[in-house]
Structures are given as structure tokens and as C-alpha cells.
Amino acid sequence: MASTVDKPVAARSGVDKLAWRGRPRGNPWRRPWLMEGFTWLYIAWSIVPIAIAVLFSFNKGASQATWQGFSTKWYVGSQVTSVLHNPSLHQAVIQTLVLAVLTTLICVPIGVGFAIGIDRWRSRTSTGLNFVMIFSFVVPELLLAVALFLLVTQALTFIRLGTSAEVAGLVVWNISWPAIIVRARLITIGNTYEEAAADLGASRIGAIRRVLLPLLMPAIFASAVLVFASTVDDFVIVEQLSSTAATQPMSVLIYANVHGGLSGPALNALATIMLVISVAAALIGYAGYRWMTRGEGTSKRGTEALTGITGI
């Protein structure tokens, strides 16, 4: 090129180098195929086995591997092995729900009190109790379950194996959910509302009851749902602390029968019911959290609800 002749060579090569470095390679706005592909693989890997298990609960035949047509016989039809008619199967459903409700009712109020105590009453004790809050994330569940088993069979024998021991264990295991979720909300809402209430004449207790608790309601609700769902899913603790077949919840029954006994699609039906209860609880929690915080006008309430529900 004629025009480049009068420019110093060194300067020209420098410019060219810069221009080469700054030039984007390919279209920066193209679809991220690789990332998208992995995401879908991950989703398939987690959902397909569950979907197959659910599908075979509707199998006409007694096989968990060969599809023989659609039927609801394992839920309601069969007089012998359907969830509805087999006493041990429907007893397990009832036991799961009883445990979930009792645990939620006991766990949530204690957890809320725990969170308020730790956050609003600052002292050395409350700092130490912070650890207890993340207890269930640190301690292996099996260890706690075995320890509780020894405790109620050797020391605290007035707590009988069965429903009462199961509830006690589940409450200890799940107390972190309300404590952490409610505490997160306490930090978000800050002290101002309580100060305003005190300024208007409310005592400490009055301010908590009339102002703090209503403001905490979304978090309390979210943690209740989470405790409920987590109790429905629990296996390790209830397996150790159940006594007779009458106090076996769904998870224990499925485990006990998966290699023999009451095998077949009836177990898939039971597992499907467990799944539906958990998913329904999470959905109700998500919708409820959004509804309760509707007046707060932030655009990120969807995400907030999700984190509220999942406790992350």
C-alpha cells in the first residue's frame, strides 16, 4: 500500500497489534451452546429417573421395568396392594403426614424464638448459640439419629420409640430452618420498626407481638413449609426412631420393602405421593411468600421467595 510508506514501520506494527487484540473473535452474542447443553444434561440426569419411577406407578402390570399400559390400580384399584386399601401402605402415608404436621407445629415457634433471641438479644451466649443454628448442616444426620436412639432407649426412657421419639428427633434436626430463615429476615427489616413501635408506646413484648411478628410472617410461613417438606423426605432419623410398623412413615416403608416384601408399582405409587406432597409444599410456600410480601414492592421478590423457601 502506498500510503503506509511514509509511516514509521515500528509505529505501524504497534497499531496493527492493538487492532488485532481488540477485535472480537466470533459473535459475542451467540447462544452459549456448551453451557446450555450442560444445563439440559444436568436437568435430564436429575429428572428422568424420577419421571420413570413416577411413570411405573401407573403401570397396569406388576413390573417396575416393563410398561404394560396405564392404570391407577396401585393407588386405588387393587384391593390388596393399592395405597388406598393396603393397611400398611396407607398407614405410612398417614404417619408421614402426622409427623410432618407435629414437627412443623413444634419446630417453627421454637425456631422463631431462637432467631429473635439470637438477633435481638446480643451477648456472649447468643454468639455461642449461633453455632447451634448451623448444627444440622455440620453434624451427620446418621450420627444424630444413632445418638438420639441411644438417648431415648437408655436415658430418657419416658420418650418412647415411635411417634414421640420421631417428632423429637425431627424437631432437633429441622430447627435450623426457621432459625436461619427468620434471622435473615430480621436482619433485612432492621431495628427501625421496633423502635417506631416503642416510640409510639409499645413495650418490648408489645413491639414484638404487634410489629415484629407480622413482619416476620412471610419468613415464618416459608420456614414452616420447608420444615414440613423436609420432614416428609426424612429417612435417617425416622428409621432409627420408629418402633412398630404402625409408626413407619413412607420413606422407611419404601426402604424396608424395596428388595422384597411389598415390592412392585405400589411402592412407586407411595414414592410418587411423597414427591407430590413435597413439591406441593414448596409451591405453596413460594406462592405464599410472594403473596405475603406483595406490599414490599421490590422487583426481586421471586428470587427472594425462592431463597426464602430453599433457605439459601
Binding site: E195, A196, A197, D199, R204
Partner: peptide, 28 residues
């Protein structure tokens, strides 16, 4: 304690109770 003093505060952030109506806030 604040609730025994005959003074009232208007906060910078207002601190209106979001779950109460205007009238309920004023009547608090």
C-alpha cells in the same frame, strides 16, 4: 425506655408499618 417518654419520633425512613393501613398506622 422510649415507650414511657412523652416524645414521639418521625424517622428518616418513616418506618410506617407496611401491613397496616394508613388509619391503622396512625391509630397504632
Amino acid at each position: 425506655p422510649p415507650h414511657r417518654r412523652n416524645v414521639n419520633t418521625v424517622f428518616q425512613s418513616y418506618a410506617l408499618f407496611p401491613f397496616l393501613t394508613v388509619a391503622e398506622n396512625v391509630a397504632f
